[in-house]
Nucleic acid binder design. Structure first.
Ligand SMILES: [Mn+2]
Ligand SMILES: [Mn+2]
Ligand SMILES: [Mn+2]
Ligand SMILES: [Mn+2]
Lengths: 217, 217
DNA sequence: ACCTTTTTTTAGTTTTGTCTAAAAATATAA
DNA sequence: TTATATTTTTAGACAAAACTAAAAAAAGGT
């Protein structure tokens, strides 16, 4: 698998998770920031390599081999992100781009030893589950802040958007993984949410609310 | 700098160190395990990018920018090798191929934090000096076992050949970095050397002797 | 100096991954 | 159902990095 093929596999895996079904050429091109014709080319190549099934005009569906490889790349990405934060003083908004490079390093021993070195972490710095050596990982149900109820308390356990912009916004408002707060008010007009954390009140927009994963306290 | 350009820069740097002068196209092709025509293509490209000076039919000489970049890649290679051995339970014969991949990861913060995490090591697992952030590194004079004198004692401080084959040979004979021994006899007929280490005597061939770096005790 | 061998460069091709433009298939909507 | 819009695929081109084959330059030997 080349670097490019791995990135496409990861993108297809991601889109399959979101939609629950096959992945359209346009959606894939959009996700990969490229043209539909390029996506078609790669889908055909990956179909040749038995990584997915492609029915022309009907989209692509990962094979077991393709899904397994995608999960391996995701495992590497999340382990490296964890390493960068835990050992190399990176902030959670600085790790993604470097992990995008590191996830393509080829060495089974490297990644398994890294896993051991980090003491087999279950979640990465953004709250995403880390697949183990066999590709298994936790999928606890997470709600977003848009789904939370007034006067109830929650803990932040993940982010849907892991862009540097969003993460820095959270930092500047003292919200991180593990942060607990109470939902004070949900504004019907613009779907903004007022929360109380550490005795401070804060209003967050809908764009923020829908990207915060919570667990009920 | 692309991965390929970086590998060529490293090779040219290496050959310049060995010969002390400019690098011929053939030597470069040999080092890179490729054809002379490919070497010419890349030398021209690197000359365009001001990484080296190329006089047709006269070979290539690194510019300051080229040498500086080569040293940066070498710094990364050696820091990663150190990380693999110190933290991830790799043996010294297992690190090279993985480091060849890791040395191309682009992130200044990554490598400087790795350096700090490893507590600014001065030498890699093969005894090669690690350039610091500014590209400076120790160049202590090293002799090879072929140059050692009878009835004198030495300590192994490096290897010239870092192939897995050679390193495994050393392992199986209990020779590693820091190992001390006495030179018992130098055989004029075939340049083999008999040494005494930990009360055991061992005869090593000339091929072995010329790849072992020593310091006088 | 002249011929031969070796080294280096040039010219043209291949593969991978991208692109634009155009054609074909599918979806939508009057 | 038929026209229109959208999506997807095909066709052809390009850049990077490799290759082979051939031409050109330099080095060696007599
Ligand atoms: Mn990430
Ligand atoms: Mn992550
Ligand atoms: Mn090495
Ligand atoms: Mn080394």
């Amino acid at each position: 698998m080349t670097l490019s093929e791995e990135n496409y596999l990861k993108a297809i895996y991601h889109l399959e998770q979101l939609s629950g079904s096959g992945v359209s050429t346009n959606a894939l091109a959009e996700e990969m920031q490229t043209k539909a014709s390029s996506a078609t080319d790669m889908v055909k190549k990956l179909a040749d390599k038995q990584m997915l099934i492609h029915v022309p005009y009907q989209g692509a569906t990962l094979s077991d081999a393709g899904r397994s490889h995608a999960v391996k790349v995701i495992r590497k990405h999340r382990l490296w992100e964890t390493f960068l934060v835990e050992k190399l003083n990176f902030k959670w908004d600085e790790v993604h781009d470097v992990a995008e490079q590191l996830e393509h390093i080829k060495s089974e021993k490297l990644i398994d030893e890294l896993d051991r070195f980090l003491e087999f972490p279950k979640y990465d710095p953004h709250g995403d589950p880390i697949p183990d050596k066999n590709g298994k990982f936790n999928t606890i149900e997470k709600i977003t802040l848009t789904q939370a109820l007034e006067n109830k308390s929650y803990r932040c356990i993940g982010v849907k958007d892991d862009s540097s912009q969003f993460l820095k916004y959270l930092d500047s408002n003292q919200i991180g993984l593990g942060t607990s707060f109470e939902v004070v008010h949900k504004e019907p007009f613009d779907q903004s949410v007022k929360i109380k954390l550490k005795d401070k009140e804060l209003v967050v927009s809908q764009s923020v609310a829908k990207n915060l994963f919570l667990e009920t306290l």
